[in-house]
Amino acid sequence: MRRVLAVLLLAVTAVLGLATPAFAHNVLLGSDPADGAKLATGPAKVTLTFDQPVQFGFNTVTVTSTDGAHWEAGPATVAGNAVSAPVRPLGPAGEYTIGYRVLSADGHPVTGAVRFTLTTPGTGTPASVAPTGTAAPSAGGGGGTPVWPWIVGAVVLLAAGVVIALRLGRSEDGQR
């Protein structure tokens, strides 16, 4: 047992040595415009600031009015702890919602919303087709082969392997 413990301690050390630093979930510290802000003119861009750096890629920032129309003008960009997205000139006065989904380095997406109010109507029109607002084209973009057939194949292969292995073991048992 002591030998096992020693090997395990070594293993832990090895894993910790190799491990890339993992982050906790990002927490939103502030935004521009701030949550609950009342603005006379629409912002040209919205910025969300987090407590630690945001992973590049996989980040989405949207600006929507209460009727569900989208007002963001392009994909989100990352700069250190901040994520920002350009905004079209806003339209009717009222409440707008900045929705975000950013990726913590531990692989868990963090979502949330910040709301601000436009007090004076603008002249802008919403995007006709809602842009997806992804910072990077979907990662890898490896040709769009669906992944499920591969997983099903792996499961079938493993199951077959297990059955064969157990059969072999049993026949060996019987011979003894």
Partner: peptide, 17 residues
């Protein structure tokens, strides 16, 4: 979106999890 092999490869390359 449907998940593609490329998506999974990108996830493995870029995310610790």
């Amino acid at each position: 979106e449907p998940v593609t092999v490329g998506d999974v490869a990108g996830y493995v390359r870029r995310i610790g999890a």
